[in-house]
């Protein structure tokens, strides 16, 4: 599967718009992703290891259910297959 990044997130993955990962679940894929790109860790995940809601997650183009942000078990049960894509749409606004 691959992760696809947009906007301000690119600077945390060395400006690589796509990162290929080979893991059986979303949770493991995320862990591998942040281990490969340490700067991304605290930006993408909160202190409890959950995905920050600021980054909208799309699986194969479909917006993912809220439970995949806040429930690591749900992410662990979500199988990732070859050809799957998880797109992070990040638009951070100012005050």
């Amino acid at each position: 599967m691959k992760f696809i990044f947009s906007g301000t997130m690119l600077r945390f993955v060395d400006f690589a718009p796509e990162v290929e990962i080979s893991e059986p679940s979303l949770e493991l894929a995320l862990q591998t992703l942040v281990s490969q790109h340490p700067l991304l860790g605290s930006v993408l995940l909160d202190g409890e290891g959950n995905v920050r809601r600021t980054h909208q997650m799309f699986l194969n183009g479909e917006l993912m259910d809220v439970r995949y942000y806040s429930d690591n078990r749900a992410r662990g049960e979500l199988a990732m297959q070859r050809g799957d894509s998880v797109y992070f749409l990040t638009a951070i606004a100012g005050g």
Partner: peptide
């Protein structure tokens, strides 16, 4: 200017997401 960037990012992403959906 930041708003314009974000609006552009969203527009580009929406098209990319449509293509990913069709591909799936």
């Amino acid at each position: 200017d930041v708003l314009e960037i974000q609006l552009g990012v969203v527009a580009i992403s929406e098209l990319a997401l449509t293509q990913l959906k069709e591909k799936a």
